[in-house]
Every structure is written in structure tokens, then in C-alpha cells.
Design a binder for these strands. Sequence first.
DNA 1: CTGAAAGCGCTAACAC
DNA 2: GTGTTAGCGCTTTCAG
Lengths: 366, 366
Amino acid sequence: MNAVKRKGSRTTVASKPDIRTVAALAKVSIATVSRTINASPAVSEKLAQRVWQAIEQLNYFPNTHARSLVSGRSRILGIIVENITNPFFPELIASFEEIAVAHGYEILVSSTNNDAQLLTNCVRRMLERKVEGVAVLTFGGEEPVLDQLAIHNMPIVLAEFHLDDPSVSTILLDYSAGIHEAVRHLVELGHTRIGFLAGPHVLHSALTRREAFEQTMHEVDLRVHKNWIIECDHTLKGGVTGFEKLMALPSRPTALICSNDMTAIGVLRAAYMANLRVPEDLSVIGLDDIDFAEFTLPPLTTIRLSRHELAKAAFDALRLQAEKSSSAESMIQREFLVSTSLVVRGSTAAPAAEKSASKSKTSLRD
Amino acid sequence: MNAVKRKGSRTTVASKPDIRTVAALAKVSIATVSRTINASPAVSEKLAQRVWQAIEQLNYFPNTHARSLVSGRSRILGIIVENITNPFFPELIASFEEIAVAHGYEILVSSTNNDAQLLTNCVRRMLERKVEGVAVLTFGGEEPVLDQLAIHNMPIVLAEFHLDDPSVSTILLDYSAGIHEAVRHLVELGHTRIGFLAGPHVLHSALTRREAFEQTMHEVDLRVHKNWIIECDHTLKGGVTGFEKLMALPSRPTALICSNDMTAIGVLRAAYMANLRVPEDLSVIGLDDIDFAEFTLPPLTTIRLSRHELAKAAFDALRLQAEKSSSAESMIQREFLVSTSLVVRGSTAAPAAEKSASKSKTSLRD
DNA sequence: CTGAAAGCGCTAACAC
DNA sequence: GTGTTAGCGCTTTCAG
């Protein structure tokens, strides 16, 4: 009926079937069509079949905007990450998307690059699109803007940060387990001089990782050399710079744990440039286990943080929040734990003789 | 007015301001509010100011779903990539998003992993969300499903593939330029025995790259050894396998150009494991120049393909299509060119003496 | 220049 | 079970 007034319709298919078109073809009311689509149990087998048939025949699919408008539910989930350029995040997003799509949700991705302006902007966009929940996986530093979301009563899931709001869930990353394994591994290899290349301290995760390291060192009775803990920025370049700072020190560690894989890969590169052999002269361990880690030279020993587990936790948290009946509101799970574990590859080995970590100068204990 | 019937409203802000709420506060009609928001010139300074003030005061923003429903325009662009796990794509997506957001568009990302089922599904999702255009940057192999989009008269931009439909634009990647430079570079270094690790032939881009290679070789009068052209799959692992196949050959090239950086990085890894030194024993060149390329061991010489240029071309193409006045329909630009160029780093050098590329056996010319 | 009113395509009461 | 109908929040004629 409405096939006439199209303007540029060249060989286009009989323009955009409507819920009405379907109803007409199936000889039912639009309400029945709607019910059928939404799998309402209150539709008889017989009609349902007629409807589905009409739907297929017309190649019809519902207009999500109309749906969202009337139902108030968009079936869109937001995910905000720090930097889509760090391979950890694409892998995380891919997992999140897969899970979301499987459950009939769409996702809206945004990366903030730690820029407050961008964050504000993307929170606004999420609000405008009426997302049903937002996973904030930037790992820290964005509390101020979160209020904007919380105030709209939007379900949120945060990594590593607890916000005392009923619509906010938290994912805790259990770094201790993996870092403990890593230190143990190093100790068993014979290392006692272990350094740590931290992430930017504005990130909760970076701080947590660093603390887990120090804690573990104490537990195994190893000395933590403050100047062997260097704040980097979780990028490749940062790893290079961190390594260089370390080399400038009069006394150096024989092993290095890095706050993420990107840093570790930067170190690998810098060590190579400095003619230091990994792992013979220096053992290095990363954190994340991005796909690349297996392909570095040498293959990177690293602490694995499962993107899939993390994505799943985020999705579950959001869904629980979004679909909670207002009655059982306070009963839902609001805290999720994701574990870590060591993956041993080629970038760790027993330290060489005493002067191992130094190229030419003698290494002094400080 | 409508602030009462909220259910769980705890400390929530005076629930969701409406266009009506704004109109009431500003003492104008909702039509005026709408016009103001949409920057219609037909609103007097005075009223516009009152409206904006009301908007700010209420922290109001329009409901995009309602907007899309009535206007038929969603301000969403779709982007379909092959594999979000290859760093080339996140970098591409980030650029595309940045441009799109700057122009007030939202983006819907999907990766297909070369899975036809996934592709169909995501085309459907895009259609459901009423995207205004789709950038299909999977680089080949998805023609069948594209019809589904074309039939809906949806603006599409394709990489490397020409579809004879008025709503389809094409981005041509000028690989020849970069590959030419690469081969020249190798020749100047003294190489004559050059191999090529191709991408999967189902991808147009892979085929085009390979052809550009062969073409260039002919141009510089170098022999193309068919068995030095090996089909890989554009992954790290694929690079390793490709390299191994090459090593099994009785005669080997002294330099290798790879269809993408991932392959090249795989080769770097495999060469290391095989005790072959890069670049002394084997020069290798990648294609893409992903961020990682600068941080491999040794730093990768590669043919740069600007993600930003590509993203911009895709966006422009889509926007031209989407915003074309039906009159000037046939006048718009439908073809875009993105160039490539060589970035020389550390993975290329002059070949060693004659037996260079062989580890222990003598290398025979075939 | 401004306002009133008619829907956009769909869901969710509410009747039958 | 099924159909009728009243909007969801907004844009857009059409009058004034």
C-alpha cells in the first residue's frame, strides 16, 4: 500500500515492509504480529506460523528505533575502554560483542585515551542512545564523570573500583594470584633482584598491580628496591623509556615484571638495542597475555588475564542490573572476580653469574 | 508534570526531561524547541536563547530513537571489518570513529572473521538499526551478502572491489606505489632473489597485493619464482608457517615481502627460531605499518597504508552518498584512492655472500 | 517567525 | 487468544 511514494526507488525491493504490511499479509492484527515477534506465549501455533511465513516472505524486520521508543529499552550496551590501540582492548571488545550479540544486544564502543573531554562526550552519547548499561573498562581515573551516569540510574560495571551506588557493580581482578606465581617462578629460577615497571598511577589497575607486586615480594622475603620500581605508561614506548631509566642506575635487577605486555614488549625491544640478551642477561615478564605475546622475540612469559572472563563478567553484571525486577533489587550479585595465572614462555631464565644484569660496568648492590 | 509515576526513583534527578518540559520552561511550543535543537534558521535569537537556557538548566538531551523514528535518519554508520584482532583494524576503527563522532555520527562495529554466517547476521543488525551507510572494510569475499545491503539502497563503501550499483562507492588502495618502492629498495641493497608471502586469495586485497608484486618484479626485470610466492593467511601464525614452507625449499630467496605486517612479524619470529638472522641472512618487509612494526626485533621495514586516510575516504564516501540530494545523485564522487609508501627500518639490509639465505645446505639456484 | 496537529513503527494495556 | 487503541518523543507540514 505504501509502495508508491518512494522517490529514487530504482530496482529497490517493494519498499520497507511494515508491521502493518505483515499483519495484512498474514491476515491478523498488528498486535498479533508484535506478540509473535516477541515470542509471547499468548499466540496460537496456527497464527504464529502464518505470521512467520509472512515475515519471511516480505523479508521484514522490526524497526528498532520504534521498538526502543515505545518500550523504553534499547537493547544496546555501552563499553568504554581506555585505548583501542592496545591489543588487549580489541580482544576484550571482541569477546564482549560476541556475548552481547548472542543475547540480542548491540554494543556501542568508545575509547577515551584517558581524555576527560572525550569521556564526557562519550558518556553523553551513551545516554542519548539510551544504552541499558555501560561497562567502563578503562581501569581507573574517571570517577567524576561516572556520576553523570549514576545519576541517570544507569547500570554500570567498573573494573577495580568500588562505587557505593546500587546501580554500580564491580569487577575485581585478582592480580595477586598471577603475580605471586610470577615471583615464585623467578625465585625458583634463582632471581632475587626483581624490578617492576608499573603503569600510570592514575589507573587503579596499575596501582593494584604494583601493590600486589610489593606485597608478594614481602611474602617471599625479597627486598623491594624502590628505584627498581618505575612508573611507565602501559605503552610500547613507555617500556623503552622505563628500561632506559633502569639502565642508567648503578645497580640493576636481573629480572623485571611489567605492569602490562605492551611495556614488556617495549623492554624487549630496548634490551635488544642495548645489546642485553633476554632472558640470559635479563628475564622479563609481562601481564595480560595479548595474542602478540606468543610471537615476540623471545616469546614472552606473562601473566594471563582472560579477556573472555572479563568480558563475561562485565556482561553478566550489566544484564543482572538491567533485568532485575525492582523487587529483588538489592539481592543481585554486585561483585565479580576474574583471576590471573602465569604462562611461562621464553623470556625468563636463570640469571647468569653475579654480574649478569650489567653490560660492562660491574653491578653493585645498592 | 511527568515526574511522579517513576517507580524506583531513589535520588534520581527529576526524571528525564522531555521536549515538552523544555518547551514549558522556555514558554514556547515544542516545535520551536525542535527547531532550535536542529539549528533551523527560522528561530528568532530571543526564543533560541530562552530555549538553550532551558535545555541547559534541565540537562536535557533529545531521545535519538524518537528522532530516528520520525526523521528516518539514525545518524549511525556501520563499519564491518575482517578481524578486530589484527591491530590494523582497531587503528582503522579508531580513526573512523573519531571522524564520525566529530560529525555527529555514531558507529556500529562488527567483525566477521571471514565467517559468512556472522556477516549475514551483522548486515541484518545494521539494517535493523537503520544505519545510514556501511563501510565494508573486510577486503574481499563478501559479495553475496552485499546484495542484501544494496537491495535496501543502503550506501556502501567497499575496499578494492567495484560493484555496479549507484549506492556503492569504492576505495582503491594503490599498493603499486609502495610495493614498487619496496622492491627498488631491495634491489638497491643488492637483492635479486625476492619472495612474497601472500594473503589468503579469497581477499581481493591479498590478490591485488600479490599482483602488484609480480608486476613490479617484471618491471625491474627480476625473475618471479612461483614457489617463492606462498599463500599465507595474514596472521602471525600464518607467517610462521609460510616461512617454514620456504625453508623447506632447496633454493631460497634473500629477501621477503609480506602481504601484511602480521605475516612479517610471524616470519621474524620463525626466522629467529630457525637461527636465521634478520636482516643479515634474510631481509623482510611488511605491509600496513601497524604501530607494532616499529617495535619488533629488528624494527620492521614496511609499506605504510595510512589508516587515517582509509578511514577518511570511507567516511567521506558514505557521507556523500547519505547526504546527496536526489537531484545530483549521479554526480558524486564514487571512487577514492589511498596511497602507500615505504618506511625503511631495520629488517632490511644488503644480502650476505652468495650462500646467504641458507643455514647449512648450499643454496642452489632453481 | 511561531504554534497546532499529524503521524514515524511499534508495544502494552484494555476490551472482546 | 486476538483485536483496538493510546501513546513513546520527536519532526514536519500547514495555518496563522
